[in-house]
Structures are given as C-alpha cells and as structure tokens.
C-alpha cells in the first residue's frame, strides 16, 4: 500500500528515475564509456566535442568516461556508508527505546555526545591523521560517525510504539523480546528507516566529495570528489575549462537531488498530516458553501 502511494507521487517518480538512471549508467560504465578513464586520450583541457562528449581533463583524460566510472565509486561509498549508519542507528535506537533503563542511559549519552561534537571537523581530523584515505575507509569513517541523529529518531519512535496495545498484546501471548523487536516493532519503523537511510546516503555522498575535494582522499581513485580535486588543483576554472569542474558538480547535484526528492516523497506518504488536509480544507469548503468570506 505504501509503495503504491509512492508510485503515484510525482516527486518520488522523478527521484527514483534519476537515481535509477545514475545507477544503471555507472554499472554499465565499462560498456558505455568510450575510453579508459585513466588513459591519456587527448590534449589537456580539450573542449567538449563529438569525440570527447564532456571534453578532457588537464591530464588529457576523457571526462565523460571518468564521470561514469566515478559514479561507481561515489555511489558505492554513499550506499555503504548509508548502510553502516542505518545499521548502527537501528541497533542502538531500538535497544535504547525497547529495553530502557541502563542500556538506554548509556546509548542516549553516547548519542548526545556525538550530536554535540562537530561532525566535519571530527572527520577532517580523523582523515588527516589517516593520510590519503581510500574510498572504503571513507565509507567506514562516515558510517561510524553519523548514526546519532537516526538513532535518536528511532529511539523515540520505539518508545512510542512500545506503549501501543498491539505490543502489549504480543508480550501477553508470550512473544520473546527478540521477536517483539524484529517482527512486531521493526516493520512499523520501515518508513523512518527508509528515509533515514536515504538521508544517510545523501550525507555520505556529500561528505565524501568534501573530503576528497580538499585533498584528503586517495587521488588515484576515480570518484566525483577526486575529479573535483583534480579540476581544482589544475585551476580548471581559471583557464576556462569549466567542463572539467562542472561535470562532476552536475553529477553529484543530480544524484543528491534525486535522493532528496525521494526522501521528500517518503515523508509525505508516511506522514499523512503533511498532505493537504485539516483546517485549510475545512476552511476552503466553508468558503465554497459561502459560510465565510475570504
């Protein structure tokens, strides 16, 4: 039912289409890409042409081929970090909310500490000490530092659900805690988990781009972030090679935007209150019947 509502939502459809498009072209990069992304196949900073659709980089590499392959790494890092974040948020949020007591105190404390520590500077310090960080390591450090917000949301939802009569009823028929958590509670949290996951992926893609842009990533890997880094360090904009910078920018933005649209739609569908309803509609009806004047 949820899915059906989602399909009917135009924002969701646009979001899902763009996202699917990106995933497909990145996966199909070896087939679509005209050149080896790491090979010098042209002159430095050639403008876009039929031969090089998005021009070439300072190193004479084909920007179109690069952006396709970069998608593989950037999207994988985003999804991996998103999965780690969501998993930790879920494990901590559910345990804190359902078990309460000591467990809750410890988890809530850890959550609150992480929330007041500055995320980006913390990541920068970690990455700076780790040296040139590989994409896998980036996914990991983003994942383990960004679960606190999701954990808090899941905890408060779990607390509310735990008091519901259907949970009490399940306890009364003798369901063990494990089943109550995973079979009775969890399915009721799906929309929150879903939008939390999407949010985490957005955050991870953005943060990866940031870290790599300022040169903390591994410059030999090809991702949207390292493309930005190379374009920036070769002063692409100042020499007029706008495509070098613009192409990864557009890729990141479109991918982020597609996720954001999807997330917006999920919220809208899951939280009926945000749909046009209530007083406004009541008021409009009254207006129509002539009971009030505008």
């Amino acid at each position: 039912m949820f899915f059906k509502l989602l399909i009917r939502n135009p924002q969701a459809v646009i979001g899902m289409s763009i996202m699917a498009f990106f995933i497909v072209i990145s996966l199909a990069a070896p087939i679509i890409a005209p050149y080896d992304p790491e090979a010098r196949v042209g002159l430095p900073h050639e403008a876009p042409s039929s031969e090089h659709l998005f021009g070439t980089s300072r190193m004479g590499r084909d920007v179109f081929s690069q952006v396709l392959y970069a998608g593989q790494i950037s999207i994988t890092v985003g999804i991996t970090a998103g999965l780690i974040t969501t998993f930790i948020a879920l494990a901590t949020g559910l345990s804190a909310g359902y078990f309460g007591g000591r467990i809750d105190e410890v988890i809530t404390f850890a959550t609150n500490v992480i929330l007041v520590l500055p995320q980006l500077p913390l990541l920068l310090v970690l990455a700076a000490f780790l040296g040139e960080v590989s994409p896998a390591l980036i996914a990991f450090i983003i994942g383990v530092t960004s679960w606190a917000w999701g954990s808090r949301v899941i905890r408060s939802q779990t607390l509310a659900l735990r008091e519901k009569e259907f949970i009490k009823a399940a306890e009364l028929i003798g369901e063990p805690a494990r089943r109550i958590i995973f079979i009775e509670l969890l399915p009721n949290l799906i929309s929150i988990i879903g939008s939390g996951f999407i949010g985490a992926v957005i955050y991870a893609v953005m943060t990866q781009a940031t870290l790599e842009f300022i040169g903390l990533g591994d410059p030999t890997s090809i991702s949207w972030g390292t493309m930005l880094y190379h374009a920036q360090t070769s002063s692409a904009i100042y020499v007029g090679a706008w495509w070098d910078l613009l192409v990864p920018c557009v890729a990141i933005s479109l991918f982020g935007a597609s996720l954001a649209l999807l997330n917006f739609a999920v919220d809208e569908v899951a939280n009926p209150k945000l749909r046009a309803k209530g007083a406004l509609r009541r008021y409009k009806r009254m207006l129509k019947r002539g009971e009030v004047k505008a």
């Binding site: 957005i202 893609v205 953005m206 781009a209 940031t210 842009f213 930005l228 920018c249 990141i252 933005s253 982020g256 935007a257 996720l259 954001a260 649209l261 997330n263 917006f264």
Partner: peptide, 11 residues
C-alpha cells in the same frame, strides 16, 4: 529547498 540542501556546499 530540499534539493538545494542535498547538493554539497562544494558544488
């Protein structure tokens, strides 16, 4: 607004 928020500040 949401889309704007999901574009990295770098971009």
């Amino acid at each position: 607004a949401l889309v704007m928020q999901s574009i990295p500040s770098v971009v």
